[in-house]
Amino acid sequence: MAEFSDALSITASGLRAQSQRLRHLSENIANADTPGYRRKTVPFQSVHDAGGAVGRVEAGRVRLDPTEPQRIYDPSHPLANDDGYYTGSNVNLVIELADAREAQRSYEANLKMFEQARTMSKNLFDLLRR
């Protein structure tokens, strides 16, 4: 039975990590036009507990993308400098949408594994009751 709880723990950790990743991706998309906004990325790291499930993952500390933000020429913008430029964001919507699709698919795969492990443990209990 420990294998089933380990499988549930591993998939639940994947669900939490992808959920946090999706949260930051949606924040990046929402702030794509915000001047000075820096894209946030969430690295994943494996967790090794003594006696815990092997293969669990968790989201690491949020990092700001070091890519230089674009300079936008608009002399009428209130944040524009003397040359007429202001600092935009460094969010690329194509990258954000691709990352969001990848995170969504990973979330769905972890959810499917969670459901499969739960179904298998239920079927095992049904067999043991007979």
Rank of each mutant, 00 (worst) to 15 (best):
N90C: 05
V94K: 08
G52S: 04
V62C: 01
D99F: 04
R56N: 02
R63L: 15
G52H: 14
G51L: 12
A98C: 06
Q70W: 02
P69C: 01
P69R: 01
S89C: 07
A80S: 00
E58P: 00
S89P: 06
A50T: 10
L97I: 11
R71N: 09
R61E: 14
G88P: 02
A80N: 01
R61Q: 15
L64Y: 13
D74E: 03
D49G: 13
D74S: 02
G60F: 15
Y73P: 00
N90F: 04
T87D: 09
A98L: 05
E58W: 00
Y73F: 15
P78H: 12
Y73Q: 05
L64K: 10
P75M: 02
Q70F: 05
T67D: 03
D74F: 05
R101I: 07
V91C: 02
L64E: 07
D49L: 13
I95V: 14
L79M: 14
H77T: 07
N81C: 06
A100W: 01
V91A: 03
G84T: 10
D65M: 00
P78Y: 14
V62K: 01
E68I: 11
L79K: 09
G88A: 05
T67G: 02
D83W: 13
A59E: 06
Q70V: 13
P75H: 05
N81M: 04
A100Q: 03
Y85A: 11
L79R: 09
L97T: 13
